[in-house]
Computed example of a mutant assay.
Amino acid sequence: MKPYLIVLLGATLWFGNSAKAQVLTSLQEVGTPELAQKREALKESLIASYLGIKNSLVKSDSLSAVKFANELITGLNQFKFKKLSLEKMNEATTTRQEMIGLAQAIASTKSINKQRSDMDKLSVKMWSVIERFKPEKMSLYKQVCPMTGTSWISDDKAIQNPYYPKNMLTCGEVKASI
C-alpha cells in the first residue's frame, strides 16, 4: 500500500502544479510555427474588428460599426478552438454563437443607440474569451463606466467611453488588464 500512496502523492504534486490556469500561446494550441502564425494573425484580426466597432461608437459612426461588426462575424466563423475538453468546447461554441449573434445585431442596424446596447453585451462575452486566448504581443484593458456599469475593451489605458462619447467621453476606469 505504501508505494501506491507515494506514487499517488507524487502524481498529485506533479499534476497539481502544472494544472494552473494559463493563457495559451498559439504555438501551444496548434503545434507548428506556420499554424501558430496564422492563428495569431486571426486572433489579432478579431481584436482589431472588435476595437474597430468600439472606436466607431466613440465617433458615433454607425456605418463604420456595421463594417467592423461584419469583419468580426467573418473572423469568429473562421476561428477554430484547439485543445479543449468536450465540455469546454461546447461552452466555447455557445459563447462564439452568442458573440456572432451580437455582432449580427450591430451589423443589422444603423441605430447607434441599438449598436451601443449590443456592444455592452458583446464586450462582456469578448472579455471572457480574451482572458483565455489573447494575442501574444498585445496589451488589452477592460474599462468600465462607473456611472452606468457598462464595459468595453481597449488597447489603450486612456478612457474613451463608446457609450456616451458626447457627454462622458472620459468617464470610466481600467478594471483589469491582460
Results as ranks from 00 to 15, higher is better:
residue 2 K to N: 08
residue 3 P to H: 05
residue 6 I to N: 12
residue 9 L to V: 15
residue 9 L to T: 14
residue 16 G to T: 12
residue 24 L to V: 06
residue 33 P to S: 13
residue 36 A to Y: 01
residue 39 R to F: 04
residue 40 E to C: 14
residue 43 K to T: 07
residue 44 E to T: 15
residue 45 S to W: 01
residue 47 I to L: 14
residue 48 A to N: 12
residue 48 A to I: 03
residue 49 S to D: 05
residue 51 L to W: 01
residue 52 G to P: 00
residue 52 G to L: 02
residue 52 G to Y: 02
residue 53 I to T: 01
residue 54 K to I: 03
residue 55 N to K: 14
residue 55 N to E: 14
residue 56 S to G: 08
residue 57 L to V: 09
residue 59 K to H: 13
residue 65 A to L: 12
residue 65 A to V: 11
residue 67 K to N: 08
residue 67 K to P: 03
residue 72 L to T: 01
residue 73 I to S: 11
residue 73 I to M: 09
residue 76 L to D: 05
residue 79 F to G: 00
residue 79 F to K: 01
residue 80 K to Y: 02
residue 81 F to K: 03
residue 82 K to T: 07
residue 86 L to I: 09
residue 89 M to Y: 08
residue 91 E to L: 07
residue 93 T to S: 15
residue 93 T to C: 10
residue 94 T to Q: 11
residue 94 T to L: 14
residue 102 L to S: 04
residue 103 A to H: 01
residue 103 A to K: 02
residue 108 S to F: 06
residue 109 T to Y: 07
residue 114 K to F: 04
residue 115 Q to I: 13
residue 118 D to V: 08
residue 120 D to P: 02
residue 121 K to P: 00
residue 127 W to A: 06
residue 127 W to I: 03
residue 127 W to N: 10
residue 129 V to R: 03
residue 129 V to M: 10
residue 129 V to W: 01
residue 129 V to S: 05
residue 130 I to G: 01
residue 131 E to H: 12
residue 131 E to C: 09
residue 133 F to V: 10
residue 134 K to E: 07
residue 134 K to Y: 02
residue 136 E to P: 02
residue 138 M to Q: 11
residue 139 S to R: 15
residue 140 L to D: 03
residue 140 L to T: 08
residue 145 C to W: 05
residue 145 C to R: 13
residue 147 M to S: 15
residue 148 T to E: 13
residue 150 T to G: 07
residue 150 T to Q: 06
residue 150 T to P: 00
residue 152 W to Y: 08
residue 153 I to R: 04
residue 153 I to G: 01
residue 153 I to N: 01
residue 154 S to D: 07
residue 155 D to Q: 13
residue 157 K to T: 12
residue 163 Y to V: 13
residue 166 K to S: 12
residue 166 K to I: 05
residue 169 L to E: 10
residue 175 K to P: 00
residue 177 S to P: 05
residue 177 S to T: 14
